[in-house]
């Protein structure tokens, strides 16, 4: 019964995930695209929970679904609807054909690799304890084995913040020049 329940949740979450990803790339209005990306992130968080990555799922909802998407929505609202493109218009048609072919090639490669390996070790997951993926375990790993990754991440975030400020002030100067 529990098995069936896990499969049912997996099917619903993965279908929602794929459908919202397709919605992101096919809406012409970026506002709706951003909203459907929130659905995509939420269904991925459900999949992370099924894989017992509780801390990552919480971080996904808080950082991605919260902070990053709010930033996206602010920028979209600030810029307004000024694109006026219909979603698939423009560009030579060979570009579209090439893109579809490349996407299909990625997909085929992965499916072949999975098919070749599926009979082997791929289908035997390890048994894990209850604390697998808990904030405690992740925090301990971050402060012991992966301390350098932790520190480098903080530097990356600092550089990105400085870059955002520099880009913003540069744009403001150009705007001021244009006005005078």
């Amino acid at each position: 019964m529990a098995n069936f329940l896990v499969w049912a949740v997996w099917c619903v979450a993965s279908f929602a995930c794929l459908a919202s990803a397709l919605a992101v790339v096919s809406f012409s209005n970026p506002f709706y695209s951003a909203l459907s990306l929130i659905g995509n992130l939420a269904s991925l968080a459900v999949l992370f929970l099924l894989l017992s990555g509780e801390f990552v799922a919480a971080g996904q909802v808080l950082v991605y679904g919260g902070a990053v998407m709010v930033m996206f929505l602010f920028v979209i609202a600030y810029l307004g609807d000024r694109t006026g493109e219909s979603p698939w218009s423009g560009g030579p048609s060979w570009q579209i054909v090439g893109a579809v072919l490349a996407g299909g090639a990625i997909l085929a490669e992965v499916c072949v690799v999975v098919g070749l390996e599926a009979g082997g070790f791929l289908s035997k997951p390890q048994h894990v304890t209850r604390s697998f993926g808990s904030p405690e375990a992740i925090g301990r790993l971050f402060l012991t084995d992966h301390l350098i990754a932790f520190e480098v991440t903080s530097i990356v975030l600092l550089v990105a913040a400085v870059g955002g400020v520099v880009l913003g002030s540069h744009a403001r100067r150009i705007e001021g020049d244009a006005r005078t």
């Binding site: 790339v25 493109e85 560009g91 996407g103 997951p125």
Partner: peptide
């Protein structure tokens, strides 16, 4: 739950969808 193959296939489909979006759309957002 589902075996790892299903997750790999789902991730491949998601990645291909995102790649299609990058290659086909022209709106930077």
């Amino acid at each position: 739950g589902p075996d790892i193959q299903w997750y790999v296939i789902l991730a491949a489909l998601l990645f291909a969808t995102g790649a299609l979006g990058v290659m086909l759309r022209r709106n930077p957002l």
